[in-house]
Write a protein that binds this DNA or RNA. Structure first.
Ligand SMILES: [Zn+2]
Ligand SMILES: [Zn+2]
Ligand SMILES: [Zn+2]
Ligand SMILES: [Zn+2]
Lengths: 160, 160
DNA sequence: GCTTGATATGTTATAGTATTACATTTAGCA
DNA sequence: TGCTAAATGTAATACTATAACATATCAAGC
């Protein structure tokens, strides 16, 4: 599955499908996608961009779903634990998962100009990082892989 | 150069050599390794661990080199810009560079038990992340690659 | 239906990380 | 010496995240 988010696509469908998948996944795994959690996911899905916890909170507050920081952080904890969202460490921000369901090691391509983010797959224990880890006798449990740079659109139109 | 930091080594020499290299590099590039900056690097070098900005500041304060946050953040800006230190995004912490001088794309192996950190090399534009970027038409300027897990020592003695 | 325990939410306060802004000093150079 | 740019001193503030505890909701199991 290629990196997603920079190519134009039917994004309304993108949102609809993911929410439906999340509903199904939660039903199957006895997780509760409560109104706050579901709306938080929907907000993250609105754009292929990362949102700060307080940005998310501001939108939840507009909807009357809570005003205090724990509201946002609890929703984000749930979504990230369930694999519905990821934290972008380099931005202290959160984004909906684009490779739903799979237990995966995400890698992000982050455009420093337009702030859009695409999620690609990596294999944690393969590749050069895996090699380095094996050579050092290190056991990987989680990886953070993020690339900062320019997306195709912003390379062509730097001032956009 | 293999990942470093987990293997026992002459660490006093490790510090001495790096400081000397930093002195030389600054002389050559007309950068000023002022007392605050030099001491900050020395503090980061003291252990192969990442230090928070405020931890660094606390030590600088003991030495009478400043008490306000900008003191630490300015020193860290200088050190990271010069390539003498790196930020570990996943920890909001900073560590001295273990591959001095080279303009490189560091990858970190971070032990979640003992907090030690080893720095390995990666090539930003090669490997799987590079492939994903090329496929997406994305131009990488900087990468964040961090692996969380257990170092050799902590795998053997989980309670240490 | 009621009890009960576990999960989720409401709310306040606080901890931890980082930057802005502006005054002052210092270092390098004409 | 006088000028300029860089570095430092300092206060205030912004941004990110968690702790702690009260209350409410839900899903069994009786
Ligand atoms: Zn979409
Ligand atoms: Zn994902
Ligand atoms: Zn050493
Ligand atoms: Zn390095």
């Amino acid at each position: 599955m290629p990196a997603f988010g920079f190519q134009p696509h039917d994004h309304a469908d993108c949102i609809r499908t993911t929410l439906a998948q999340a509903d199904a996944y939660c039903a199957q795994h006895k997780l509760k996608l409560t109104p706050i959690r579901r709306r938080a996911l929907e907000i993250l899905l609105a754009e292929h961009r990362a949102l700060g916890a307080y940005d998310l909170l501001a939108v939840l507050a507009e909807d009357g779903l809570g005003t205090a920081p724990p509201v946002a952080y609890r929703a984000l904890d749930f979504l990230t634990s369930a694999g519905f969202a990821h934290k972008i460490e380099g931005l202290n921000a959160y984004i909906a998962c684009a490779h739903f369901g799979a237990d995966h090691s995400p890698a992000f391509l982050i455009c420093t100009s337009c702030k859009s983010v695409a999620e690609a797959e990596t294999t944690a224990t393969q590749g050069r990082l895996g090699e380095a880890a094996r050579a050092a006798g290190f056991t990987i449990s989680r990886t953070v892989v993020e690339a900062l740079g320019l997306c195709p659109q912003c390379q062509e139109a730097p001032c956009a």
